[in-house]
């Protein structure tokens, strides 16, 4: 019973008015948007890591340079996912 009350409290908080309904939709779509934003960078980082490992295995003497460049590539790719994360919070609160 108490648990039901809690669920109801959350639901009531979310569905208070029309503005809240918009909020609700924003929260849902924000989560969805973040999920979408994570797909591309995920694949990209995988590709970068794979290529870096391959080239490091092929030429171990250039491992230092490859590692630096790999981190740079990951930083640029990851930025997209992180912007998605920030937009997710922005949509929820702005």
């Amino acid at each position: 019973m108490e648990a039901l009350a809690r669920i109801a409290k959350v639901a009531a908080a979310a569905g208070a008015s029309a503005a809240d309904a918009k909020n609700n939709a924003a929260a849902g779509s924000a989560g969805f948007a973040y999920g979408l934003a994570a797909i591309g960078p995920g694949i990209g980082i995988g590709l970068i890591f794979g290529s870096a490992i391959e080239s490091m295995a092929r030429q171990p003497e250039s491992a230092g340079m490859v590692r630096t460049t790999m981190f740079l590539g990951i930083a640029f790719t990851e930025a997209l996912a992180l912007i998605g994360f920030v937009v997710f919070i922005l949509l929820k609160y702005a």
Binding site: A12, A13, A16, S17, A19, N23, Y93, A94
Partner: peptide, 26 residues
């Protein structure tokens, strides 16, 4: 939307929704 709630829930709901709309952006 029809909501029937006790005094207590209305208060908490109101404060939460207010926090969600007017709280400073994190």
């Amino acid at each position: 939307q029809v909501r029937v709630a006790t005094e207590e829930q209305t208060d908490s709901a109101a404060s939460t929704s207010e926090a969600a709309t007017s709280a400073p952006n994190p």
